[in-house]
Write a protein that binds this DNA or RNA. Structure first.
Lengths: 139, 139
DNA sequence: CTTGACTCTGTAGCGGCTACAGGGTTCAGG
DNA sequence: CCTGAACCCTGTAGCCGCTACAGAGTCAAG
């Protein structure tokens, strides 16, 4: 008999932090597992898959709620793919907006680098913070 | 006599949320203002500048602690500009890393869009979450 | 005198974890 | 049989940077 899959084992197998697993259970992202008489959680191997699914979804930047939806979609395979596609599209729009924001920010910061002023009296950054109307236009 | 500058007025003048101003005072980013006998905070016009400075620093993505440092630099103009430059550089590195991350993410997401599968049985996103090793390489 | 707009303090919530404290359990080595 | 390490448990608090109350006091216009 292989040793039973406690939370620590599952954590190592799935690559998800042990405390995070308990957190996911608490917020309803993971089902309540079986408990031994000593109160320990024991998991079957389907939980590894489920946690990896969650981890990948999070790595792709989906929120917990979105991951929850995706899990439901994965569990009910007869539903149309449109919902998943919609999530991806919406997320893609957000990511692209964030990229644009950061690139504008990068341009401003680049202009502020390599200021060789011996004092901050004429420091570009400080002057920018004090005088400019607004560096980032959107919002 | 113009009406005294209460926190609400300062909020409107600086573009910083009223509750945020109180929060900044609490964490030591803003000095304690004068108080009237009724307990109301009253601000002089230098506070507008200070708050705008903070707001712009935040818009540029600097953390509260970094903004605190920048405020000190702005207050002590005889110090070399190097410290400010160092902050900008470090921040720029972070921003560029984040852009790179998001662009990789965008590429993955783009590949996942426009899945026309009538069910999620062969949905690209779901399959990706279930099967792929890892979409984002770094970490 | 009332009404409504302001102000105050203190605390709790957001997301997504992470890190304890203070206890119980299990197992291997001596 | 005992000890100690390595687990496990619950519950709560902290992180960041705000934001949103509740419940109270204050002020000025009509």
């Amino acid at each position: 008999m292989s040793p039973r899959r406690t939370i620590g084992v599952l954590s190592r197998e799935s690559g998800v932090n042990l405390e995070t697993i308990r957190y996911y259970e608490r917020i309803g992202l993971l089902p309540h597992p079986l408990r031994s008489t000593n109160g320990y959680r024991y998991y079957d191997e389907t939980m590894i898959k489920r946690l990896r699914f969650i981890r990948r979804g999070r790595e792709l930047g989906f929120s917990i709620d979105e991951v929850k939806t995706l899990l439901q979609l994965a569990d009910n395979r007869d539903q149309p793919c449109r919902e998943a596609d919609r999530l991806v599209q919406a997320h893609l729009v957000e990511v692209e907006a964030k990229i644009a924001d950061l690139m504008a920010l990068r341009d401003v910061l680049t202009q502020l680098t390599h200021c060789q002023s011996p004092t901050t009296e004429h420091c570009r950054l400080i002057e920018t913070l004090e005088q400019r109307r607004c560096c980032i236009t959107s919002d």
